[in-house]
Nucleic acid binder design. Sequence first.
DNA 1: GCAAAGATTGGGAGCGCTCCCAACATTACT
DNA 2: AGTAATGTTGGGAGCGCTCCCAATCTTTGC
Lengths: 337, 337
Amino acid sequence: MNLEDVARKAGVSRSTVSRVINNHPNVSAAARERVLAVIHQVDFQPNHAARTLVTRQTNIIGVSIPEASNVFVGDNSYFPMLLQGISETLNRRNYTMMLWLGERQDTRDVFARRVVKHRQPDGLIITSVEQHDPLLVYLLHHKRVFVMVETPPHDSARINYVTVDNVNGVRMAVQHLIDTGRRRIATITGQMNIYDAAERLEGYRLGLESAGLPVEEALIVRGRFDYRAGYEGVQQLLPCKPDAIITACDASALGCIRGIQDAGLRVPDDIAVVGFDDIVEASRSNPPLTTVRHEIQRVGSTAAQLLIDILEERLEQPQQIVFPTQLIVRASTVGVQ
Amino acid sequence: MNLEDVARKAGVSRSTVSRVINNHPNVSAAARERVLAVIHQVDFQPNHAARTLVTRQTNIIGVSIPEASNVFVGDNSYFPMLLQGISETLNRRNYTMMLWLGERQDTRDVFARRVVKHRQPDGLIITSVEQHDPLLVYLLHHKRVFVMVETPPHDSARINYVTVDNVNGVRMAVQHLIDTGRRRIATITGQMNIYDAAERLEGYRLGLESAGLPVEEALIVRGRFDYRAGYEGVQQLLPCKPDAIITACDASALGCIRGIQDAGLRVPDDIAVVGFDDIVEASRSNPPLTTVRHEIQRVGSTAAQLLIDILEERLEQPQQIVFPTQLIVRASTVGVQ
DNA sequence: GCAAAGATTGGGAGCGCTCCCAACATTACT
DNA sequence: AGTAATGTTGGGAGCGCTCCCAATCTTTGC
């Protein structure tokens, strides 16, 4: 069943049917009505491929979450929430999501080529971009439309992105710890080739500096954005006697709390712990986690909105949006309230 | 840049280029080499839409996770893990994933029509299908290829599905509780319109019956597959003085444990708790959770494999795969070991 | 050495749509 | 009424590919 068939049934031409489907104004009421009736009657849907072939657009948005962020499985609800946010906008604006999960870093150039040249998605939302990621280079070079969900590692003036105020978030956390009497504040970072991790570390340094405290390299452990990194990071930190630990994400903070408890110490009495993200588990942990909140879902839905607006030419590139972060104080830093 | 352009550059015809790209045997080594060189040089990728238009296949697999399973956000890593499994197979076999998240139940028929008629994905993986879901009816009626990840509510002989042995899993759990001296075993179910929930409840009943224990309706709370259902279910159960609770999933079990602890009772001393799934958080909870393990990721990758095999005609429909479940005993039922 | 079989090649047709333009119908205005 | 402007319609061309068939080239067997 194609346009021509519908046209015949409705006693009009292919063109008229096409106009009706695409809401072109110049169709007489009578013709429109007849066509609509037939479309409804035979449950007609225009062929997507044929349409794409001529219009050069698919109404598909690609989302890439590479392996580097192995946080997808299990421990970290960050990405599911991001996807949920993206999906919300996509559903509303009649786009579909094409998802690439766990693309391996070493095959990224192959992937990049496929995604970019294939021209399947109209635009891309990308995350966890590593330094010198071939995908980024490729996208830029081929002038494809994309939005990053994090601060870009370079070229940030030319790139569309949505991110959160990592630096300030962590600065607030440091300030809070200092205000509550902590002095040996340690940190467990995320993968340092991901810019969010670098920014959060920067916030840590700035926080200490502006309070006039020294930055001790021994108190900085390079980790990952997951539970184990937190758990193992603690082992490494304990000999340095920290009285507080700021982690790169909540998953890591939860591992951190468990590590501290397993070592026979108490949170927050002996060591205070601050996370980042405010995932649902944060408020349910024992003790509940003080953390830097940002609205992940909103970031996702905003990124999608931005992308679509750019694609539909309602917005000029580049666009940069930085959402504020907010410190949520719970019992992991200040005891039972 | 299209086939014709490549052909001209390589000094052959469009057809020959097409043959090279599609690995047809009848191309001379010399021609193949020249074409390949040009393809590489200009970084050529054939137009996907054009190809789809004639071959009628997209190499896209659709995955639908409707709103009913509102478990995607936050507390339950079930779906992320399932996606990971699916994605693994898809990457390997050169398909891409189109993901529909949170499609609302009341717009499901619109959705169904779009997905089915649009013919965008070659096949579908669907989950959390409710009783009389229009999508299912539509898929069946239009003879589209799909695999369910759970036992189908009806027509199960005609439908491809991958599921786990829910009934036996819960039976084992019940048996374990009885073996460790529990007698008032309660349960908090998932959404009863999802068949997994019904099967698990069935396992609960059978477990009790085969041990000669009565099934008390007051000990059965109808809940959902999430944390809150567990937490709130406990409030409802406490007056009935259960000494053990079996939940429909780990997320719910974790809520349940917290509910019990908040009520001033101890797990497992006062009430034992058993979950279902064995998500990573299960082993990290306090106390660690006894649960029925099934390999979610494997279910996902198997479902994808099945679907692709059917699409590529290596396999006849219908296929049914039931993975075994395994009881993992931890401290939430038997104290510190 | 030559016919038959087989391998290789090129071009036409067509997938189902959109877009453009020309043709025709209708309305508005002088 | 007559013409210009506007509204409506149909059909051709073309998007970039695959598939088929006919044409050409190569090999093989006797």
